[in-house]
């Protein structure tokens, strides 16, 4: 390799968790481009921590939406 960037045999950049985490988060707000998608999927295949990070962000989003609709069951709101 002539550059300092680690790559998979197919040429895809081997990104760190820090970069992968950004891509995981960005995917909630925009479409990733082709390279980003490949980099992230290669990383996720071998990184349990980032898989869990993604699962946690999905849950965070789900709970945030629940928060907007009123989390309490109606009968439970007033004791």
């Amino acid at each position: 390799m002539t550059d300092d960037v680690a790559r998979y045999p197919d040429g895809t950049r081997d990104v760190s968790c820090r970069e992968a985490a950004r891509l995981i988060s960005f995917r909630f707000d925009r479409e990733l481009n082709h390279d980003e998608r490949r980099e992230l999927s290669m990383h996720l295949m071998e990184c349990l921590n980032c898989q869990r990070f993604e699962q946690q962000l999905k849950l965070l989003q789900q709970l945030s939406r629940q928060y907007a609709s009123g989390a309490k069951a109606p009968d439970d709101a007033v004791s």
Binding site: C17, R18, N49, R52, Q55, L59, L63, A71, K72
Partner: peptide
């Protein structure tokens, strides 16, 4: 992150709070 850009901590799977009182405490 450590110097190589990998998470320092190990993450667990999160689960949704179930009961209404648990949800209230969560929120």
């Amino acid at each position: 992150f450590d110097e190589t850009g990998h998470w320092r901590a190990e993450f667990a799977v999160w689960t949704l709070p179930d009961a209404a009182h648990e949800q209230r405490a969560f929120f």
